[in-house]
Every structure is written in structure tokens, then in C-alpha cells.
């Protein structure tokens, strides 16, 4: 190894070491924040859905497009400036956002997702590490929106925030038809009871959505956009949070 290579290697190692030190220093100063790894889990749907009117539906396609989550602090919380790890140091860990919809994710408790989930397979997405202000959170906002296609799907699906298609189970022949669909963004605040404690080690927060429960509101004979509305309205009731210390 010649001296030049040694120097370069040493410089690189020093740089990495400095980065680590800087990162530790920043975190060491951040007593008001806790690093939290956030995951999104959506159990796979059973492709046999029982509609509200008792009809059995054989699901053929099921997609849901999550735009973002946001934790909303209980009113008493009042904290100092925040540096979001996601935006800065650890941004390389986060899947690239394909569209910003005119929205800037500048709030520390905003969690971008911007992904379309195939509901017929299990979804288990790592959303990144966030420095969340410690304290109590009383509400969460879950917003769905159209996201660009990265799976080669039809335009009918990519233009939707919710798309459920299937066939009547007893007549499992012929082409499937759309059962529930929405082609717009939808968001809702719903109550949660979450406390982010002080912690020197990263915590893990799992957001789970039980879509299959929300789909039980579907009635097969109802137009797809009306079924879509019912699913969206009930979806937030199926969101659960689990914080692992």
C-alpha cells in the first residue's frame, strides 16, 4: 500500500469517524427527542371476502395508496426546535418520495409513505428512523393519495387511492369487476393514545392497518365509488400503533 492510498484511506476513515461523532453529539444534545424506527404493516387480505350483505367475493386485485401519517401532539406539548433525522442525517435510509403533491414534509412528526400497497400480499415497510419529540400524542392523521406507478399497473389502478376488484364467489368465472374504488385523496384525524418516552436507544413503532376489517363494510350491489367511500371512512378505525421500548 503506498502512502497516497494510506492517506486517502485514513482521510476517509477520519471523515466517517467525524460523521459518527457529529451524529452522536447531535443526538446527545437532543434530550427532547427520541429516535424511533417506524414500520408499516398491513396483513395480506384473504382473497375470499364476505361482503356486508353476506355475498362472498373472490378478490382479484386490491390496492391502497398511503400518502402519509402524522402524529399530532396533545395540546400541552411545547418543545424546542427539532431536527428530523429523516430529513437530514438518515435521509438515505428512506425510500425516495416520487411525488410531493405540493406538500413539504417539514414537521417532525410527519411520516411520509407515498407507496401503493398490494393488499393481497403482506405489506411490511420500513419507513425510516424519526426523531420524534417525546411526549403524548392524542391524534394521528392518515392520508391516502394517488402515488405514481412503480409496479407496471394499469392506469385505472394507478389513478386510484383505493382499488378493489373481484368476482362473486359462486360465479367465479368471467372477468372481475371493480367493487370499491376512490380516485382522490382522503385523510382523517383519529384518536390515539401514544407516549414517546425519553430513550437513549431507538424505539420501534409499528403502524398496522387491518384493511380486511374495513372491507367488511362493502356491499356487493353498491356502486364502487360508494363502497370506496365507506372503506375510506372506516379505515382509520383499523389503524393500530404498537410502540416497542
Amino acid at each position: 500500500m503506498n502512502i497516497k492510498i494510506l492517506k486517502n484511506t485514513w482521510l476517509k476513515l477520519s471523515f466517517v469517524w467525524l460523521l459518527l461523532i457529529k451524529s452522536s453529539l447531535v443526538l446527545a444534545h437532543s434530550d427532547d427527542f427520541t429516535r424511533v424506527e417506524v414500520k408499516l404493516q398491513i396483513p395480506a387480505l384473504d382473497n375470499k371476502l364476505t361482503a356486508q350483505n353476506g355475498d362472498l367475493i373472490n378478490l382479484t386485485q386490491a390496492y391502497l395508496s398511503s400518502f402519509s401519517f402524522e402524529l399530532i401532539a396533545c395540546p400541552q406539548i411545547n418543545l424546542k426546535p427539532v431536527n428530523n433525522d429523516k430529513v437530514n442525517l438518515l435521509s438515505w435510509l428512506i425510500p425516495a418520495a416520487h411525488a410531493n403533491h405540493g406538500v413539504s414534509f417539514t414537521k417532525p412528526t410527519q411520516i411520509p409513505v407515498q407507496q401503493r400497497h398490494n393488499l393481497l400480499v403482506k405489506t411490511d415497510i420500513y419507513l425510516g428512523i424519526y426523531k420524534l419529540p417525546k411526549g403524548k400524542y392524542c391524534q394521528m392523521n392518515y392520508t391516502l393519495g394517488k402515488v405514481p406507478d412503480n409496479q407496471g399497473l394499469s392506469s385505472e389502478i394507478t389513478k386510484s387511492s383505493l382499488f378493489i376488484a373481484g368476482k362473486q364467489f359462486e360465479l367465479n368465472i368471467g372477468t372481475s369487476h371493480i367493487i370499491a374504488k376512490s380516485d382522490y385523496a382522503f385523510g382523517k384525524n383519529f384518536p390515539i393514545n401514544l407516549e414517546i418516552p425519553a430513550s437513549h436507544k431507538p424505539l420501534s413503532l409499528v403502524i398496522s392497518i387491518n384493511v380486511s376489517e374495513a372491507l367488511k363494510i362493502i356491499t356487493h350491489s353498491v356502486p364502487s365509488h360508494k363502497n370506496g367511500r365507506l372503506v375510506l371512512l372506516s379505515l382509520s378505525e383499523q389503524v393500530t400503533l404498537e410502540l416497542m421500548l
Binding site: L25, S30, A73, K80, P81, N83, T106, K107, P108
Partner: peptide, 27 residues
């Protein structure tokens, strides 16, 4: 400064970052 009306957090700061403390880095 851009302040979150809900939480009071300073979301970002427009201006020169000279003589700032660590707690502002990234803002």
C-alpha cells in the same frame, strides 16, 4: 423562523447560520 402553530416547534429558519448552536443544525 417558521413555527408550527400546533406544537410551537421551529420547523426551519431562513437566514445566516453563523454562530449557531448544535441544536439548530439542519434547520
Amino acid at each position: 423562523l417558521n413555527i408550527d402553530h400546533q406544537t410551537g416547534n421551529v420547523l426551519w429558519i431562513l437566514g445566516d447560520d453563523k454562530e449557531i448552536s448544535n441544536s439548530y443544525s439542519g434547520s
